[in-house]
Amino acid sequence: MASGKLSKAVLIPLDAQNRDAAEESWISVQFNPASLKVTLANTLKDSKSGGGQSKAAQFVDKSESTLAIELVFDTSVLEAENLGETDGGQTLLHKDVRRQTQRIATEFMKPQDAESKQPKAPKRCRFQWGSFSFIGMLSSYNETLDFFSPEGVPLRATLALTFKQDNYQFDIIDLKDALSRQGRLAVDGEGVSAADANLAANRDPKQWRDTALYNGMENPRHSDQQGVVMPPSSAESGSGSGGGFSYGQSYKLGTRIPGAF
């Protein structure tokens, strides 16, 4: 794939067979993490001889994989058109950032059947970012609120998340296959238009602006990149012509020409 495209990390709920849930239930991060910390650990067990003397460790009793990440959510940067939302008859001057972080806490930290006498463990999830993939259960959730509106509404949060899995894992996934499974890799090759890419991905060709913007195409009639990737669906993002990307954001997503498209 060509460089310069922004790939967003996602948290994907899994079923009991480790199968990905439907894409509309995926949670995209607002800002990709600055780093990922993966820890692999083995618990070794000694083997003793008949004489009672201990030999060196002979086998692994248990393996464990841990992923630690920090995610930042900031609603102070929302566009003016997203402000003024009504909630219970009150006009919200700012968006409460916990409306975003609550999805992660509820989906992956809250026990299933929490009101029952024997709540079940939370759902496991897949953290996926490009070719990096990690499956685990959210074992630790720490939220820091560090920026508030004048009305006392929290606008910025940093989540320190730790995922654990009781086995060894070091997955490197094929990026092209992953995008194809998600219906995001529309065309593999150069010269395709944004509208044709939408047709190839079974999307409305009239939403060509979002596709062109997401891929940083200065000429939406002709891609000069090795493949066209479809933007997230409207459920994952804000307001645009269809896929949800504001046209004034092109400097963040590829062309770096403010106001392109």
Score class of each variant (00 low, 15 high):
134 F>T: 01
116 S>N: 08
128 Q>T: 01
126 R>A: 07
99 R>H: 08
134 F>Q: 01
135 I>A: 02
110 K>R: 14
128 Q>S: 00
124 R>I: 00
109 M>W: 13
115 E>P: 00
119 P>A: 11
110 K>I: 05
121 A>R: 15
115 E>M: 12
128 Q>P: 02
110 K>D: 00
125 C>I: 05
124 R>E: 08
139 S>E: 15
117 K>E: 15
103 R>Q: 15
118 Q>E: 15
118 Q>K: 14
138 L>E: 03
130 G>I: 00
134 F>R: 02
104 I>C: 08
124 R>W: 04
135 I>R: 11
136 G>S: 08
118 Q>N: 13
123 K>I: 05
121 A>I: 10
121 A>H: 11
106 T>Y: 11
115 E>H: 06
122 P>L: 07
100 Q>D: 14
138 L>F: 10
114 A>E: 13
134 F>I: 07
107 E>L: 13
105 A>W: 13
109 M>S: 09
137 M>R: 14
123 K>M: 10
104 I>E: 05
114 A>M: 10
101 T>W: 01
99 R>K: 11
132 F>K: 00
133 S>D: 10
133 S>V: 07
116 S>E: 12
108 F>R: 04
117 K>T: 11
131 S>T: 07
133 S>K: 07
106 T>C: 09
102 Q>R: 15
101 T>F: 02
129 W>H: 04
117 K>P: 09
125 C>L: 15
105 A>D: 09
122 P>C: 05
105 A>K: 14
113 D>W: 06
106 T>I: 11
134 F>N: 06
128 Q>N: 05
136 G>Q: 06
127 F>G: 03
102 Q>N: 14
107 E>K: 13
99 R>A: 07
119 P>K: 12
126 R>H: 02
120 K>F: 09
136 G>T: 04
99 R>C: 02
117 K>R: 11
137 M>G: 14
128 Q>H: 00
133 S>T: 06
124 R>N: 12
127 F>M: 01
102 Q>D: 15
130 G>D: 00
128 Q>C: 03
105 A>R: 15
104 I>H: 05
102 Q>M: 06
112 Q>T: 10
127 F>N: 02
106 T>N: 14
104 I>T: 04
117 K>H: 10
131 S>C: 11
121 A>G: 09
120 K>W: 05
102 Q>V: 03
99 R>E: 15
108 F>D: 02
116 S>I: 06
121 A>M: 14
125 C>A: 11
